[in-house]
C-alpha cells in the first residue's frame, strides 16, 4: 500500500523563539512580558497586532525578554538607568543563540 498526500490543510500556532523556552511546553500558557504582563505572543498595550508588528526584544544577557516596545519605553525613561526592570542589571543585549542553530 502506498499513501500519497495530495493536499494537507493543517493548523499551527506560532511561538516566539526565545531560546530558553522548553520546546515541549506545548500547551503551557507561555511566559508573559515582565513589563506589561501580556503574553509574549500577545501584543504590548500600544499595539493592536501581534507578531511581526509587535516583536520581542532581543534576549538580554540577564536572560530576560520583553516586548520590544515595552522595553524601549522603559529604557527611554530616565528612571530606568538603562537597567533591566527585572533584576536591575545593566541591560545588554545577548548574542542570538537561534542564529547559530539555524543554517
Amino acid at each position: 500500500m502506498k499513501v500519497v498526500i495530495k493536499n494537507w490543510h493543517a493548523i499551527a500556532q506560532w511561538r516566539w523563539d526565545t531560546g530558553s523556552n522548553d520546546p515541549d511546553d506545548a500547551d503551557g500558557e507561555g511566559d508573559v512580558c515582565g513589563i506589561c504582563r501580556v503574553p509574549y505572543e500577545g501584543c504590548c498595550p500600544s499595539c493592536k497586532m501581534p507578531g511581526d508588528d509587535c516583536p520581542l526584544s532581543a534576549l538580554g544577557e540577564c536572560s530576560h525578554v520583553f516586548h520590544m516596545h515595552c522595553l524601549l519605553q522603559w529604557i527611554g525613561t530616565a528612571a530606568s538607568k538603562q537597567q533591566c526592570p527585572m533584576d536591575r542589571r545593566q541591560w545588554v543585549t545577548a548574542e542570538r543563540k537561534v542564529d547559530s542553530t539555524r543554517s
Binding site: 498526500i5 493543517a10 493548523i11 499551527a12 500556532q13 506560532w14 500577545g42
Partner: peptide
C-alpha cells in the same frame, strides 16, 4: 503539499 493556517494563539 502542506498548507497550514498559522494562528496567533492568544487571539
Amino acid at each position: 503539499v502542506l498548507h497550514p493556517t498559522i494562528i496567533s494563539r492568544h487571539f
